[in-house]
């Protein structure tokens, strides 16, 4: 079974991948938000595993991570919440995104086993170096049928992009420009397009999703011109801030992008 591949086979373009932080805004919102996103039409879902010091994240996800940790979120709680999720959300690919240290303390093998048991499909750990993945973790990821997703940036050299493509069997995460999550693009007109087109021209094996700084319908549609789809994180977290009914806010948010 490969839900990620199925999702890209089914829809080929304009795929929407939504990120949210587990345990935010309140501890038990994780599953209701997940269900609402899936029901509203999100094509893939990334569940953020909160970390105290998220280096690649901007203020919005930093803040949601802090709140989630204060709410008592950790990997044990998260896997408990996700147990049985595949009965309610059978098809939407679920990716776990976070930082390496909590995974190391949980134990990489334990983590992979639990992730597979709840029906997660992929893992995104931005601070897991490619070489370390290959040298130490690839066999256990493969044993549990978990697909890693690696980031590509405007500075990633072509040979390295090829290598990342080789090691990937899911999708490539194209970081839209220099910056942390949620940052607005500060690039000169045309620079970003040239980068996306350069990647497109490489004819890579894996589909591409563009992330970082995508936040509304216009930026989503623009990104979809250059890739199979796009990833929205910070803008969705912002839409959850201070709402009473998080699942309803999630449905509204997805509708605002896809309508």
């Amino acid at each position: 079974m490969n839900r990620i591949k199925d999702a890209f086979d089914k829809k080929q373009k304009n795929l929407l991948n939504v990120y949210f932080t587990a345990g935010y805004p309140s501890l038990h919102d994780t599953v209701p938000i997940l269900q609402a996103l899936s029901a509203a039409g999100a094509d893939l879902i990334e569940i953020g595993m909160p970390f105290s010091d998220p280096l690649a994240d901007g203020p919005v996800i930093q803040q949601s991570s802090t709140v989630a940790l204060q709410n008592g979120m950790n990997l044990r709680v998260l896997f408990g919440q996700l147990a049985g999720i595949r009965e309610q959300v059978p098809d939407t690919p679920i990716l776990l995104m976070g930082y390496l240290n909590p995974v190391l303390q949980f134990g990489v093998e334990n983590f992979c086993r639990e992730a597979a048991a709840v029906g997660a499909d992929g893992v995104i750990l931005p601070d897991l170096p490619l070489d370390d993945y290959v040298a130490e973790y690839q066999p256990v990821f493969q044993q549990y049928n978990l697909r890693p997703v690696f980031l590509i940036t405007p500075q990633t050299a072509p040979a390295r992009i090829r290598r990342i493509d080789e090691l990937t069997d899911s999708f490539l995460y194209l970081v839209s420009g220099p910056g942390t999550t949620g940052g607005a693009s500060t690039q000169a007109e045309g620079v970003q397009e040239a980068y996306f087109q350069r990647i497109e021209a490489m004819q890579l094996r894996n589909p591409r999703l563009i992330g970082f700084g995508i936040g509304d319908k216009a930026s989503f549609q623009k990104a979809c011109q250059y890739a199979e789809g796009a990833i929205i994180g910070s803008a969705f977290i912002r839409a959850l801030e201070g709402v009473d009914d998080a699942p309803a806010a999630a449905s509204r948010f997805v509708a605002s992008i896809l309508s």
Binding site: P126, D127, L151, T153, Q155, R160
Partner: peptide, 20 residues
């Protein structure tokens, strides 16, 4: 060569920092 003193060291950085 990869920056290890015994089991300590290495370079656990997001891809954005890799080229630098």
């Amino acid at each position: 060569e990869r920056g290890y003193y015994g089991q300590f060291g290495g370079a656990f950085i997001p891809e954005m920092l890799y080229p630098n």
